[in-house]
Design a protein around this nucleic acid. Structure first.
Lengths: 202, 202
DNA sequence: CCTAAACTGTACGATCTATTACCGTACCTT
DNA sequence: AAGGTACGGTAATAGATCGTACAGTTTAGG
């Protein structure tokens, strides 16, 4: 078998098509356009992916598998609660507001009704993993006595969403990102409210 | 002039097209389809709206002007902080998770890059108004000594987003809404964290 | 009742799209 | 080196879409 050749071609198609879909949306990209970009024949594209929807699904799966990794390698247990929340806030905001993540987000939302399987893949890969990661930290912090007992999962959702909600929406709508100083003010206020709000009762 | 006739027709087009766009997205609706739905001639549609993009812009403007009203009629100043936050939480969640709002949200996000003017209209009408409304309350609560001084606007963003973020995303992705009891748990935890987090220092 | 404007219905042209077909060429295995 | 397989390039099929044109009909007002 000549797998390497096939794999290379497959990757080339996925890479090029990913960028195009992220930029122009599902309906804004034509199969002819993809082929014009990377050369080759439409026949092989259809051989690998069946049809345009199959290509879309493959691309979503590929991008979702790439997006998770940087979030699971945080070493938070040596930090104070304040420092840990600050680290989490900065790390997540950087990933979630990156142009690529925003574009993927927008693409998935746009096609959610037409491609529900991809929407589910995305949700399980990206936000659910983030919540889980932070939930684990809150559970640990609870055990370590850093916070007052409470619903760790709910707290993870609240903290993450409070930071990302508005900034993410603005990016999804194509607005300019706000000045970093404004982001910092939001992060500071969030950490202030949360550290006080879940502080252990003495 | 026979304005009533023109106005009626215009409204009929906007109403029918709104539903169709919300359901199927911009690319999923054809002008022929709209006309097939309501009868009449494409000619008049093009006379009123210029082209498909013009129709889209008119629809967004119309829906945005409708969506704001229910949020500005809350009388919060007689309530305790906890009760006020609970009222806000329930009111906003109901509006923001309604199928119509979600569909509009999804539509705007999907077309944000192609129709930035509509995206801006939407942002100013819906989320910005919500934030402003809640910001005013926090400013008042600060003046009334119910909370410790702080950035009212940031707090408004944090509180609202912490509640809506995950639930809204799940709806945008077409998932079933979670059980009401789960929503309540999230609201309860949010109110617990916030009331404690912004309580006045004694 | 009559005129002028607005509306309807259908048909049309041009363009774009997904998908399949054909055939010659490059490549890998044996 | 031979033969089968995957690839490239072009073209054809079939259908949908936007926007316009034209001829007939309804409506509003004097």
């Amino acid at each position: 078998m000549n797998q390497p050749r096939q794999i290379e071609k497959r990757k080339a198609i996925i890479n090029a098509a990913s960028e195009m879909f992220l930029e122009a949306g599902y309906a804004g990209v034509s199969v002819d356009g993809i082929i014009a970009q990377i050369g080759g024949s439409k026949r092989t594209l259809y051989k690998y992916f069946g049809d345009k929807d199959g290509l879309f699904a493959a691309i979503v799966e590929q991008m979702c598998s790439e997006i998770v990794t940087p979030l699971t390698h945080l070493d938070l247990k040596r930090l104070s609660l304040r420092e840990a929340l600050s680290t989490i806030a900065h790390t997540f905001l950087e990933v979630l507001l990156s142009p690529r993540t925003i574009a993927l987000h927008r693409l998935i939302i746009a096609e959610a009704l037409r491609a529900p399987a991809s929407a589910r893949t995305f949700f399980n890969a990206a936000p659910a993993t983030s919540y889980r990661c932070l939930t684990e930290y809150f559970i640990w912090a609870d055990g370590a006595g850093l916070v007052t007992p409470g619903d760790a999962h709910a707290r993870a959702i609240l903290f993450l969403d409070s930071l990302t909600g508005q900034l993410q929406l603005r990016s999804l709508l194509g607005h300019e990102n706000p000045a970093p100083v404004e982001q910092e003010r939001l992060i500071d206020e969030a950490i202030a409210v949360f550290t006080k709000g879940i502080a252990p009762t003495e």
